[in-house]
């Protein structure tokens, strides 16, 4: 559906996007993550034909954004960051204007506007000037105009910025529903949002692509090893010695506890689950297990490590 090949964008010598390639399939919800100024907005602007890449090609639905810009733009609904919309127009006039620029038939246009007003909850503000609206409402007007022509592809730059928690929940439900039949790319730096809505994540940092995968793949496969932590009631030295002998265990460390038990941290190769072995050991030795869990690396951690790691060599 969307394919970027070696896309680079430089602003007066500085590379905002540096040789990025990825593709998005139909029906995917792609979360675009990165710290501020990582190149998220620039990448989205290139896909939406706001500006051309310095080098590389972007193909949307088989059409090159440089050669077939008008056709590409017809297929895309775009919500720019901060939803910049004319402050001196009222909501209804603006949606009519957007519908006319999208060349919808008058009857169809009115029907789509009614639908979008209902979906985005704009009934109460139809006659108000957009400049007077709160940030959340303005964001919703932006969403309404992006979805007005029922595009196959939706590109949303920080769609939940400025919304309250209830509205964020509503937008997430909406995004999930849209994702069943459409292709979505949304950028954000709110990580739970990505985990809640996206089927795939791309992390970019300083213009470079640093990770690409499903949310749980990213957090699971990240360290390349499994970690199990357990608290047992057992003699310390015996426990540590027995644990080191367990099959699959590559490293054992003691961790502090506050309930008089002995805490251990077992490291093993990826895909190697040592929890059963630990249980058998505890039963054989008659050591009660107080607590045991597999450590999951959170997306936050993945994000932090990836975006900080790649900062070090350059600085």
């Amino acid at each position: 559906m969307i394919e970027l090949r070696n896309v680079t964008k430089s602003y007066s010598g500085r590379r905002a996007v540096d040789d990025i390639s990825f593709s998005v399939q139909h029906g995917e919800i792609l979360g675009f993550l990165g710290p501020n100024a990582a190149g998220k907005t620039t990448t989205m602007r290139m896909i939406t034909c706001y500006m051309p890449p310095t080098s590389g090609t972007i193909v949307v639905d088989g059409m090159d954004t440089n050669e077939n810009s008008l056709e590409v733009r017809k297929k895309i609904g775009y919500l720019p960051e901060m939803a910049p919309i004319y402050a001196d127009m009222n909501v209804l006039d603006y949606l009519h204007y957007a519908g006319e620029l999208r060349r919808l038939e008058p009857a169809h246009k009115r029907q789509r506007i009614r639908e979008m007003v209902a979906v985005c909850g704009l009934e109460d503000v139809l006659g108000q000037d957009i400049g007077e609206l709160s940030k959340g409402y303005r964001q919703r007007v932006g969403l309404a105009q992006a979805m007005l022509h029922d595009p196959d592809i939706l590109i949303l730059d920080e769609p939940t910025a400025g919304l309250d928690p209830n509205q964020i929940a509503e937008i997430r439900v909406l995004i999930k529903r849209l994702g069943q039949e459409k292709t979505l790319i949304l950028s954000t730096h709110i990580l739970p949002e990505v985990q809640a809505t996206c089927s795939r994540i791309i992390i970019i940092n300083r213009g470079k692509l640093v990770a690409d995968g499903k949310p749980d793949e990213l957090s699971a496969g990240f360290h390349g090893q499994e970690i199990v932590q357990a608290h047992l009631k057992a003699p310390r030295d015996a426990l540590l010695a027995k644990a080191r002998q367990m099959t699959g265990v590559e490293g054992v460390r003691e961790i502090p506890t506050d309930d008089g038990t002995i805490g251990i941290r077992l490291e093993s190769a990826a895909g190697m689950d040592v929890r059963e072995g630990l249980w058998k050991l505890a039963v054989a030795q008659n050591w009660p297990i107080w607590e045991m869990h597999r450590e999951r690396i959170s997306l936050e951690e993945v994000f932090r490590v990836l975006t900080q790691e790649s900062e070090q060599p350059t600085s």
Binding site: L70, E71, I76, P80, P84, Y86, A87, L101, R102, Q145
Partner: peptide, 14 residues
């Protein structure tokens, strides 16, 4: 200045 140009030029018009 306001940024509305970004939406306008990504609509399908020359």
């Amino acid at each position: 200045k306001v940024g509305t140009i970004e939406l306008l030029v990504t609509y399908p018009l020359k």
